[in-house]
Design a protein around this nucleic acid. Structure first.
Lengths: 274, 274
DNA sequence: TAATGTGAAGGAATTCACAGCC
DNA sequence: GGCTGTGAATTCCTTCACATTA
């Protein structure tokens, strides 16, 4: 959906920290940086030390020029005639995205989706530590999910003070979403990822991203609809994909096989942020 | 990821059907149409008959000019000086998105995430019918999730011929994603929603959307990082949100109570399409 | 020589402002 | 008077092509 594009005025707000990039980083670039990071993690696991923009681009599904442009916002990261140092580039992107110090995450709503997220190994692997899980159901409270005990949501306020989470993930039924959100805000949470399609009302100082699965499905629907109604050579569809050179495994020189990787089924969603 | 924005060249492929819009609809607009649809459903439930672009825009979290521009791609839909007929607009958007006739969905991977999706009421409500669920685990095969029995993924090919799904949702562990995808493609599935972060290799005729939760979390991280490192008046954060007029409930004339109300600033997200 | 980094061109999406209609 | 629909201006993003550097 990414996206694209909300956030009219770029994204940032002038970063003034240590290694902060000098210019503002475009929103669209930030979205892709997260993708590059995932690919770099896989490469690192495979023992790859150096990667070229072309190889990285193919693995991430974008054009190499776009990738270089994206990386250029972080300052010089590669060596001309050689490529990028995988470990160094990875560290640089993590630093820029604010992932270096990790994040403490709490989850409110231990339903199926909440459990799926809590059990998602990819989180911890990427620096997100689940420090608290909350629910309203007495039958669920006290149980342990992914090693973290489920607490009564009634104690949310105090728990936030105790756990000091940097991010809260909300996976409660739609009607409860706003109330939970209000309590999180009252408790001082600044950053919320909501899986409810309802638009949450929060003060401007709080950052909310919303993920709506149905939106993804509907966009797929549109793709089918338009392609099936288009006049086209038999079997060929005008698809919404990147004009990436798609060559199975024949392309990249350094990639081996994709085994080790990440987490088992998890999820997530599309996106749509508030 | 949003998303936003993969898909370089617009989205469509010349629609030539019945009520097809004359022009191509921009990708960014399609993303938001799905959002408008959700808001319209809520309004309809509340008994609202007519809505102005300003009201709809606030509820959806976008600017009114943007909303009007978006709707203009679908042809004339409103009445000047009055507003939009909720039911009529809703039907029009559903038609354009290809939702009018509903979709038959199969799900591969009955883990926590798969179960969460299968049980998600929002799907059926929006015209997506789960017609088949598949898994590899003998312990799960035969069980019923949301009224649909779990079948052995070994019979996927024949089942696709039998069930004729228009969309397949993949929620299997990462290492299995490509293989499952290949089998779906071989069986004739044209449209896949994958929750695995790995980039799937498919023929150009197949449409794939990928959803990666970690990307969302990382974008949140960036938002925290940049705003916390910015120089700003105490307590106020330079956030990446829409500059929407946020006025609690004082604004809209037709809306009743806020259970679901207004969507303050929102926006939307990103998405990463392969 | 090989691949990065980047100005400049091109295209897409957003915003503005107002003409047009009820 | 009020609100839609839309050209025009603006801003943002992508793509191209090449100068630059190891």
């Amino acid at each position: 959906m990414t996206e694209q594009h909300e956030t009219p005025e770029g994204v940032s707000g002038r970063a003034l920290r240590s290694n902060a990039p000098s210019r503002d980083i475009p929103q669209a670039t930030v979205t892709r940086l997260a993708t590059y990071l995932r690919v770099l993690a896989v490469l690192a696991d495979e023992g790859v030390l150096i990667v070229s923009s072309e190889e990285l681009a193919v693995a991430a599904g974008v054009g190499s020029a776009k990738l270089r442009k994206d990386l250029s916002f972080l300052g010089p990261n590669g060596v001309r005639g050689v490529g990028y140092d995988v470990a160094k580039l990875r560290a640089r992107i993590e630093d820029v995205l604010g992932l270096s110090e990790g994040h403490r995450v709490i989850l409110v709503g231990a339903g199926n989706l909440g459990r799926a997220l809590a059990g998602y190994g990819g989180f911890r692997r990427r620096g997100f530590t689940m420090v608290g899980i909350f629910d309203r159901d007495p039958q669920v409270i006290g149980a342990t999910i992914g090693g973290v005990p489920v607490r009564d949501v009634a104690g949310l306020h105090d728990a936030v003070a105790e756990l000091e989470p940097t991010i809260a993930v909300v996976t409660v039924p739609d009607p409860a979403a706003q109330a939970v959100c209000d309590r999180l805000v009252a408790a001082g949470v600044q950053c919320i990822l909501s899986f409810s399609p309802v638009a949450l009302d929060v003060p401007p100082s709080v950052e909310v991203r919303r993920v709506d699965l149905a939106v993804e499905m509907q966009m797929l629907s549109f793709a089918i609809h338009t392609s099936s109604s288009a006049i086209r050579p038999a079997g060929v569809v005008v698809s919404a994909m990147e004009p990436t050179s798609r060559g199975g495994s024949g392309g990249g020189a350094l990639r081996k096989h994709a085994g080790s990787s990440d987490a088992p089924h998890m999820s997530n969603g599309s996106v749509v942020a508030q």
